[in-house]
């Protein structure tokens, strides 16, 4: 009896210990680091962060990136998922090809797009062959903020839309096809069926995808770093720079906490805004 009662706790103990050691402890330490200066409680690190030239820029850039990438990814993944849903043959093959980017690390993805977009990259080669540009154009310099931003968005969309797609495809498969058929019988065209039936029933999956993607998007770093270095400052990039370039782990900790706070806030907003009341669940 005693054994049986203890067993569940024993089984979850390794995971719990692991998480406490490698997640909770560093979290507490980070918070301590942020609020300390030379061993004394202080807000110096916060003041340093706020006074930095790149601070406003990195917040602006990160939000701009999230606002551009997330809606684009959700729309694209929705369209792709709906197209896959209509396929009979080759469905799995197409899905498989579409989710290949999932298997690539974000730094590698950034390097792939660097190879495409850098001044001697594929884009310039093609444009040159077509006679559209004379010589290499630097798309990723800080003097070309628009093309730099577009490049980062492209790379992020290419890299991370697949995870949204997988979540939405799984969600679509959970919706019984009779709902769509009933709507069709009772006069709804394809667009109306999508809006009035599919989208509301897919809401829980969209919510999961949004939370996951938004949290990860606020943590965007490697892709941006590969493409632009610090020409396009983002929050996690600044944390990295304060830690390793400026050797100031206090300010780096403040950045880390800021990113966490923003992610938490976004999650809370999504949970509130896209709530499906239990009585409306199938």
């Amino acid at each position: 009896m005693t054994n049986n009662r203890l067993l569940p706790y024993l089984l979850i103990a390794p995971a719990t210990v692991f998480l406490v050691l490698l997640f909770v402890v560093p979290l507490v330490q980070t918070i301590a680091l942020a609020f300390m200066d030379n061993g004394v409680a202080s807000l110096t690190n916060f003041r340093k962060m706020a006074g930095d030239l790149n601070f406003g820029l990195s917040i602006g850039n990160t939000f701009l990136l999230v606002l551009a990438v997330i809606p684009l990814q959700i729309c694209m993944a929705l369209v792709m998922a709906m197209m896959i849903q209509k396929m009979d043959k080759g469905r799995d093959l197409v899905l498989w090809i579409w989710i290949i980017p999932l298997g690539i690390s974000d730094l590698a993805a950034g390097l792939v797009w660097l190879a495409i977009l850098q001044d001697r990259g594929y884009v310039n080669t093609v444009l040159n062959m077509l006679g559209l540009v004379d010589g290499p154009v630097n798309w990723l310099s800080y003097e070309a903020p628009v093309s730099l931003f577009v490049g980062v968005v492209l790379a992020e969309v290419w890299r991370a839309t697949a995870i949204v797609l997988v979540i939405l495809v799984a969600g679509l498969q959970l919706i019984p096809k009779e709902y769509g058929e009933a709507a069709e019988i009772f006069g709804a065209g394809p667009w109306t069926r999508f809006r009035k039936i599919t989208l509301p029933l897919l809401k829980p999956s969209i919510q999961s995808a949004l939370i996951l993607r938004t949290v990860l998007a606020f943590e965007v770093f490697a892709v941006v770093y590969a493409l632009s270095g610090r020409n396009f400052p983002v929050l996690v990039g600044e944390a990295y720079a304060w830690q390793h370039v400026n050797q100031n782990n206090g300010v780096a900790a403040v950045y880390a906490i800021l990113v966490m706070a923003i992610s938490l806030a976004a999650t809370v907003i999504y949970i509130r805004a896209l709530r499906t009341p239990p009585e409306m669940q199938p």
Binding site: P176, Y179, A183, E184, I185, F186, G187, G189, P200, M280
Partner: peptide, 30 residues
């Protein structure tokens, strides 16, 4: 013709009553 232009109604085996609409909105759907 697609189903919606055939002028018919259907009752499904598993009902296919829309879970995200009230009973009123379900009945009103068509």
């Amino acid at each position: 013709l697609p189903p919606r232009e055939r002028g018919l109604a259907m009752v499904f085996q598993n009902y296919a009553v829309f879970p995200h609409m009230t009973v009123y909105e379900n009945v009103a759907f068509g």
